[in-house]
Design a protein around this nucleic acid. Structure first.
Lengths: 243, 243
DNA sequence: CGATCGCTTGAGCTATCTCAACCGGCGTGG
DNA sequence: CCACGCCGGTTGAGATAGCTCAAGCGATCG
């Protein structure tokens, strides 16, 4: 139980130093429970019926909005360690949900205790803000992707990004990692049609750059992929603290 | 001086109640100065050379990223009351700047004192996180716009959004408000070419929905605009607190 | 065995892009 | 005071990336 909580992003500062016993104890008290959901299940995050905050502990999912037209915009892919629900508190008009793609285990926090966290643990509160700022930065990057990149470029970038995230949490094995989503999910994230995603995937495969089949992503030629994605080949990951 | 600071978004809670003298005094101490920039000037927000946080007090600008290709993605339009710079702290690889479109006055905070804010004023820290969460929500919405909407829909939505923001800070006069940007700026925000933006503006004009000329935006038919933008005609603005 | 789901592929169609030209206003320098 | 250059806006023409519609295929499941 405690070990699970060690994955909590609220210890971002602890990337460099383990949590003290007191800190672990506090996280335990902030935590109100664990939630196991089956693959395919949907967590509604509308503010009204979900005053919870979550940390993903196991499994993968995706966070999305449902538009009035019924279409879906995937905001991001949820991997272990991700913190979910902060932004849900400020929205009301737009559907905002999390779908568990695989079975997932989530750590549940009570939003009402958030204030106590700010009062009693400014360092954790600080981390929380840092998380929100990182998230905002990543969304800004996504915006630039949708605004300016072609289909194949978007997919290449998504693959490099997802792979790097996977590597950061130990999901990769060599050039390979699990990526249990559907092509439709990627399409909804990148603002493309499934058909087009499919055709671009084929092209990436034929170019020997990357393969995504049977729920596994393999980067055969990361450098080429980075070139397509207009990314530095060896950029540093996003782990720098706010101050 | 003090009156200026009353515009600071760190008093979001004070939307409902004025700041106390003690609070004003604290904001004064957190504040390190004011910055006046001329229209056309650019504030570089790279983490390395800008450890500052800003609040826009007067004038308008835009926050954008510069991509490797040299293109520009406008992240948002900066209006009085906006808080800038939180997300700049976590990025390193991508250019991230603020351009003053008109002359602007900014309130400058020292990032190093942010920690003191969290330690000594958990309520303000809380507001800060709320701001970040709102920002994140808005970016998510922008993402959905770029991902799923046509040119004319994007523009209609941008107009309604900008107008509502303008109304919230008292910039509107009837159906009219100042909007001193170039068509290129809107194009870069919406992921369209200037040429296309121009043609869609013409169409909106001919439809009698909205006019944007000589730096002023006029919504002739807000309802029609909302329909095009796939927005509820009378949605409530985003002022709900986090808890 | 049939139904469903996700993936794949083909065939038009069109929204949007790029290229290019032109126009008016404004600031600058001679 | 005029001439020029520049910037932002406007419009047209042709090219194309990506969309929609549609069909087929294999795997999985009840």
């Amino acid at each position: 139980m405690v070990t699970d909580c060690q994955n909590c992003p609220l210890r971002s500062r602890a990337i460099f130093a383990p949590m003290t016993d007191a800190e672990v104890a506090f996280m335990q008290s902030f935590k109100t429970g664990e939630l196991e959901v089956e693959g395919g299940a949907t967590l509604m995050m509308e503010a009204s019926n979900s005053p919870q905050l979550y940390t993903a502990l196991r499994g993968m999912g995706l966070r999305y909005k449902t538009l009035l037209s019924g279409e879906r915009q995937v905001i991001n892919f949820v991997m272990p360690g991700d913190f979910i629900g902060l932004q849900a508190g400020v929205m009301q008009e737009m559907q905002h949900s999390v779908e568990a793609t695989t079975d997932m285990k989530l750590c549940v926090f009570d939003r009402k205790r958030l204030w106590a966290l700010f009062r009693d643990h400014p360092d954790r509160a600080y981390d929380l803000t840092w998380i929100a700022a990182v998230e905002e930065h990543l969304l800004g990057e996504s915006l630039a992707i949708l605004g300016h990149m072609s289909g194949i470029e978007r997919i290449a970038r998504a693959f490099v990004r997802l792979f790097d995230r996977g590597a950061a949490i130990g999901l990769t094995r060599g050039a390979d990692m699990p990526l249990p989503y559907r092509q439709q999910d990627l399409a909804d994230a990148l603002g493309l049609s499934v058909v087009h995603v499919n055709k671009m995937l084929k092209r990436l495969r034929e170019q020997g750059a990357a393969t995504w089949q049977n729920g596994r992503l393999t980067l055969h030629d990361r450098d080429r992929l980075c070139d397509i994605a207009q990314l530095d080949r060896d950029r540093t990951p996003m782990t720098r603290p706010l101050i």
